[in-house]
């Protein structure tokens, strides 16, 4: 009886160790290609690509179900990066999904806000703060500028404001693709 218990316990223990070791040894980090595509997308979760968010779109690209040119917020930069990653030809941005826009952030005109919470429900990234019958405000750092809060607002008190360039968010402008280097 005791032998049986000991043998069973030892065998189970050994198997546990083998599995535990191989779980570390053979670890796989998700589906790497989906993660890589997802990392290139702008994470606005705006749904303009017709998918419910950036990750579903990344999965669709990885499965070959969607072309790489459906992301207006990412624009040409994202398309070029995706083409580079996946080894396919870069495409023009699909106009059906929208136009590439300058980065904006939503601002609520707090005088006119009636506290209806409709924009809170529309926001894909929970960047709007407020409660029923209370004035709402936008957490500018979280806002992705996706425009989704504009249509539901019954009093049109939300405005998209281009992000002011400051030393903290200034970037080199992208090289102009039409411009060629001067011949020496």
């Amino acid at each position: 009886m005791i032998t049986a218990l000991i043998i069973l316990a030892i065998l189970a223990g050994v198997f546990g160790l083998i599995l535990g070791y191989s779980a570390i040894r053979f670890k796989v980090e998700g589906d790497p290609i989906v993660d890589q595509i997802d990392a290139l997308l702008p994470q606005t979760q705006c749904g303009q690509c017709t998918y419910p968010g950036c990750r579903p779109y990344a999965t669709a690209i990885a499965n070959g179900e969607a072309p790489i040119n459906q992301c207006p917020p990412g624009g040409e930069t994202t398309i070029l990066q995706l083409a580079d990653l996946l080894g396919v030809e870069p495409l023009e941005l699909n106009p059906e999904n929208g136009e590439e826009a300058i980065t904006t952030v939503a601002v609520i005109d707090e005088e006119n806000c009636i506290g209806c919470t409709l924009c809170i429900q529309a926001c894909p990234v929970d960047a709007i703060l407020g409660a029923a019958k209370q004035m709402h405000t936008i957490i500018a750092d979280e806002c992705t500028g996706c425009d989704l809060c504009l249509p539901p607002c019954p009093v049109d008190c939300i405005e998209m404001v281009p992000i002011k360039t400051e030393t903290t968010n200034w970037k080199w402008s992208l090289p102009d693709s039409t411009h060629t280097a001067p011949k020496a």
Binding site: L8, L11, A12, F15, I18, L19, S22, F26, K27, V28
Partner: peptide, 20 residues
Amino acid sequence: IMFILVIAVVVQFTEMVVHK
């Protein structure tokens, strides 16, 4: 019971190795 244990371990191990 031992064989069930062995089979479960083999299946689990195979899955991990194939996945990797």
